[in-house]
Design a protein around this nucleic acid. Structure first.
Length: 371
DNA sequence: GCGGATCAC
DNA sequence: TATGGTGATCCGC
């Protein structure tokens, strides 16, 4: 029982990334309990439990390896990493200014523009199966994206469901991109509702600061679309993305382009805030007392001995507050763009050969159409 | 090289 | 009653 309730808190209600800050601890506890009670008997929960046990087993194995490390081995790892850090530090580029723009509750906000009577109501875009976005009224009840609608309905019985209208979101997205183009013609659209802009040259041309540009950009987006967005301003893309979340909604956060400010900022930053570190990696790092970027650097020798090369490389850079400072190189003629295409469906358990073949055929035909 | 796991939106 | 779909990358086997 104890174990299950820990599992539910870790897996069913992870709130590391986005906003329920307005809720009291007591309210959060109530929401967690509701979600747990509704989840615990389900097949989905069983699967979560199975996956969680696998992660626990992996952590146990890593801990066993950690115990076998000699002082000398650890020292060697430590020295190697210190050398790496010197090289990374020498390459630190704080000459550029990046903005990460993130539209606020984008799908829900688009629906509210179409139907203003929704504005005062708790609204979720999606259905009984899954919610993709909730407006801020609904978020106060604990309703959030990636939550099944039938649970949301228990948390907030008045919740209004609106089916998604992707053409609408696409149209508003194009309007925001028209604004972004003004600040950086090469801006990178992450999805319909977010983008990375390198505003270095815009700042130089206009003499404006990053903060001023962000304010101006948000104003223009609002004039053109009647939608609000939030901005993060920082020396690289990773930091800008983290910052865009800090003063949501309709806000901005500026991290100055100074090494000192960056190091101080990341020192206490929880590892879960780093884009690319999800629930599992957070759990893994936390098991070794690595909860913040500061702790990554403190324990980098141990991490060097335990982590796989790509992950080690990634967490080291993140721990130092380093991230991409350039747009990705444009694709050459012979380079492939998209690398994969796929089609998947969730369906009720099937067992007969006939039913399974029919399902497979359905998927293949759908995929062929896409291709 | 393949399939599972992880992550983001 | 009931927990999505697409694409990318990494890693162990």
């Amino acid at each position: 029982m104890q174990e299950e309730s820990i599992l539910s808190y870790e897996t069913v209600f992870t709130n590391g990334k986005a906003g329920m800050e307005c809720l009291s601890a007591q309210e959060k506890e109530k929401i967690k309990k509701t979600i747990y009670e509704m989840s615990k008997g389900s097949a989905h929960f069983q699967n979560e439990k199975r996956k969680n046990q696998q992660v626990e087993a992996k952590i146990t194995a890593l801990k066993a390896r950690a115990c076998l490390l000699s002082e000398a081995e650890l020292m060697k790892h430590q020295r190697t990493m210190e050398h790496k850090m010197v090289i990374l530090e020498a390459g630190r580029d704080i000459s550029r200014t990046w903005i990460h723009v993130d539209m606020d509750a984008f799908f829900a906000a688009c629906e509210e523009l179409l139907n203003p009577s929704l504005k005062s109501l708790p609204v979720a875009v999606g259905g009984i199966g899954m919610i993709s976005t909730a407006n801020y009224v609904a978020r106060k009840f604990g309703v959030r994206s990636a939550m099944p609608g039938f649970i949301a309905k228990v948390l907030c019985p008045e919740l209004t469901f609106v089916p998604p209208h992707f053409d609408l979101y696409s149209k508003f997205s194009s309007m925001t991109r028209e604004v972004f183009r003004h600040y950086d013609p090469q801006f990178e659209a992450g999805s319909l509702d977010e983008a990375y802009l390198d505003i270095t040259s815009y700042c130089l041309r206009t003499g404006l600061t990053g903060a001023q540009v962000a304010k101006e950009l948000r104003g223009r987006v609002k004039v053109e679309t009647k939608l609000t967005c939030s901005c993060g301003v920082a020396a690289n893309k990773m930091l800008a993305k983290i910052c865009s979340d800090l003063h949501k909604p309709d806000g901005q956060f500026v991290l100055p382009n100074s090494r000192h400010a960056i190091v101080a900022f990341v020192d206490t930053l929880p590892v879960r805030k780093i884009p690319g570190i999800g629930r599992v990696t957070e759990q893994l790092l936390t098991a070794f007392s690595v909860n913040t970027c500061g702790a990554i650097l403190k324990h980098i020798g141990l991490l060097s001995a335990l982590l796989t090369p790509a992950l080690l490389e990634f967490v080291l850079a993140a721990g130092m507050g380093l991230g991409p400072t350039q747009h990705p190189a444009p694709l050459q003629d012979h380079q492939p763009g998209r690398k994969g295409i796929s089609c998947e469906r969730t369906f009720k358990p099937l067992s007969s050969r006939h039913d399974l073949e029919a399902k497979a055929t359905e998927l293949v035909e759908h995929l062929c159409k896409d291709m």
